[in-house]
Amino acid sequence: MPGTPDIPDGLPDRLGALAPSLGPVRLVAVDGHAGSGKTTFAARVAAALGGAPVVHLDGLATHEEPFGWVGRLRSQVLAPLAAGRAAEYQVYDWTLRRFATSRRIPAAPVVLLEGVGAGRRAVRPALAALVWMELDAAAARRRGELRDGPELAEFWAGWARAERAHFAADPSRPYAGLRVDGVTGRIVRGTVGDPAHGP
């Protein structure tokens, strides 16, 4: 997609060198506003890591509970990975409005957790790293609406309200050790991954 970020030089090696945070797994969250480039960025990082598995939080969220997925994440993903076992989580179908399939996640050296709220308070203790996609909510929404088309305009309006309420109560951005520009893919100066900032 035009305008989506590449990955910063050296980031895959840096993530692979982190201490495990969840049993044998280094769980890396990619958070940011809807439309900020999280899914594309996570896919590129996963590919650079040789096919690291990605947990997509929109598969755990539902229409009724857009941010009510913590219990499912803990029981279906975090607990098995912490025990060194493969996880398998039920995937929500946004068209059928029910959990319709499942996805297996091996206890790989690095597992990516991608989605709005991936760096929330309840998840942070399990993380080896938290990456925030730096794109403001309005710009991210414009990008998302352009991607999804006018038929999802009503969904986006409702989502924007839910997202604002979530981040007001449980912000992720202040806790991100690494912030990545959602357009250029460059590391934002002053964060841990910025070469001028040090390790």
Rank of each mutant, 00 (worst) to 15 (best):
A118Q: 07
L130E: 08
E65C: 09
A169I: 10
A153E: 05
G37H: 11
S75H: 13
E65N: 05
S102R: 14
P80V: 06
L146T: 11
V30F: 02
R142I: 07
P8N: 01
S172N: 10
G117C: 01
D6S: 10
W94T: 01
R74P: 00
V70G: 06
A176L: 12
G185P: 12
G119W: 03
T40W: 11
A79P: 04
V25K: 13
I105R: 00
R161A: 15
D170R: 11
D136A: 11
R98N: 03
W159Q: 04
A86C: 01
G35V: 06
V180E: 04
G32C: 08
A168V: 09
V116A: 14
D9T: 14
A126S: 13
D9A: 09
R98A: 15
H56G: 02
Y175F: 15
V91W: 05
G190V: 08
S36T: 03
V25C: 12
V131I: 15
R121H: 12
S102G: 11
Q76I: 05
A61D: 02
D194I: 04
S75R: 07
A139D: 15
V70R: 13
A48W: 01
I105C: 03
L49D: 02
L81G: 07
W69P: 02
G37M: 14
L60A: 00
A176N: 09
E163R: 13
H56D: 00
V30E: 05
R161P: 06
R14W: 10
P66Q: 10
E64Y: 02
A19G: 10
A129Y: 02
T95E: 06
L27D: 03
T95A: 14
G37C: 13
V25M: 13
T191D: 12
S172Y: 09
W156K: 03
L60D: 01
V192Y: 09
Q90F: 05
V55H: 00
Q76S: 05
G16H: 14
L112M: 10
P8S: 01
A100G: 02
L178C: 14
V91T: 14
L81P: 00
T191L: 07
V28E: 11
P174L: 03
A82Q: 06
R179T: 14
P106C: 06
G59R: 07
R124D: 06
D170V: 07
G37Y: 08
A79R: 13
G119H: 08
A29M: 09
F99N: 03
E163T: 06
